[in-house]
């Protein structure tokens, strides 16, 4: 198990190094000089040169990559070109919205998907299964921004249970913070839950056909006991893969939902930074997201090994 974890950690480090190179290269290739963008088209050449020196844009590419990476390792992400504030501060502020939102949505999606998937699998072909399957079909098909607007219409405007947008901040307490993240979390979670429920169902159905499930029944386990004791853990392997992918998406892919609910999250930060050619912010956020995605995959790998003993011994 330890050896397996170390090997995974090693490949995590390699992935991060490669990803940082790729991100740096792609953003360098992107057209548009941030200095001239900041000063406008009528800028004097010497002012432009001065700003380029100040931003470090006159250094060689290798030097800039090294200083970017070493800075990040120290927690120094540089200074935003447009806002003139430390990038690390900006990201930290947004992270306190985006990360809880992603976790909240993931918890919701899992909490809905697991029971729905298990229920549908245990009632295969019956009315319950068909109902769950139709509902998930709908959940996959509905675009989440439209669903978000419907949520706002019903729960914020008509029922007035929630605010239509904005974020209360954590200083007013956990409950207030969670309250303002509830509608966005639901909007993010439902389509994911629909996908996850379908994966859960089909994984379980595959397992139900396995020989060891029949063995379990021959031992005297009821259908339900066999499903819980032998089916679930085996079905978890494909489900974990999807959960890993979904978390990455929830963290980075919530740009639209953040716009709809006017949340100061990472998605909006990237969106604004791209429009303003604020390369240093874009680079940092993208790198952070890549870090998150790779780390989540690492955790999923560890979870596989916890679930499946065959992976632990195959070192």
């Amino acid at each position: 198990m330890l050896r397996y974890s170390l090997k995974r950690a090693f490949s995590l480090a390699i992935s991060l190094a490669v990803a940082s190179l790729v991100i740096f290269a792609v953003i360098e290739i992107a057209p548009g000089d941030p200095a001239s963008f900041m000063l406008g088209v009528n800028a004097q050449p010497d002012t432009l040169a001065a700003l380029r020196t100040e931003l470090g844009l006159d250094q060689s590419k290798a030097e800039r990559y090294i200083s970017w990476i070493t800075g990040m390792l120290r927690g120094d992400f540089g200074t935003s070109y447009t806002y003139r504030t430390p990038v690390s501060q900006m990201i930290a502020d947004r992270m306190w919205v985006s990360l809880p939102l992603a976790l909240y949505a993931l918890a919701l999606s899992t909490a809905i998907a697991f029971p729905a998937g298990i229920y549908a699998a245990s009632r295969r072909g019956k009315v319950g299964d068909l109902t769950v399957m139709s509902a998930t079909q709908l959940g996959v098909a509905i675009p989440n921004f439209w669903f978000a607007m419907m949520l706002v219409l019903v729960f914020a405007i008509n029922l007035r249970w929630f605010n239509a947008g904005g974020f209360a901040g954590w200083d007013k307490g956990l409950a207030a913070g969670l309250h303002s993240l509830t509608l966005p979390a639901i909007a993010l979670a439902l389509p994911q839950a629909a996908i996850l429920a379908r994966v859960m169902r089909s994984a379980l159905l595959d397992i139900l056909g396995e020989d060891f499930m029949r063995t379990a029944r021959a031992k005297g386990l009821s259908r339900r006991q066999a499903l819980w004791r032998h089916g679930l853990r085996n079905a978890l392997i494909p489900v974990l893969t999807i959960i890993g992918l979904q978390f990455s998406f929830l963290l980075a892919g919530s740009i639209i939902i953040e716009q709809v609910f006017y949340l100061p999250g990472l998605g909006r930060l990237v969106f604004q930074a791209i429009s303003a050619r604020d390369l240093i912010v874009v680079e940092s956020v993208v790198m952070l997201l890549v870090f998150a995605v790779i780390t989540v995959n690492f955790l999923v790998d560890l979870a596989y090994a916890a679930v499946d003993p065959r992976l632990r011994s195959r070192t």
Binding site: D211, F212, T215, H230, R233, N234, V307, R310
Partner: peptide, 15 residues
């Protein structure tokens, strides 16, 4: 009690 044909798949791999 019952014994089946396929010993390779008759046991739960994760237990």
């Amino acid at each position: 009690g019952m014994v089946f044909q396929e010993p390779m798949t008759a046991l739960n791999p994760v237990k």
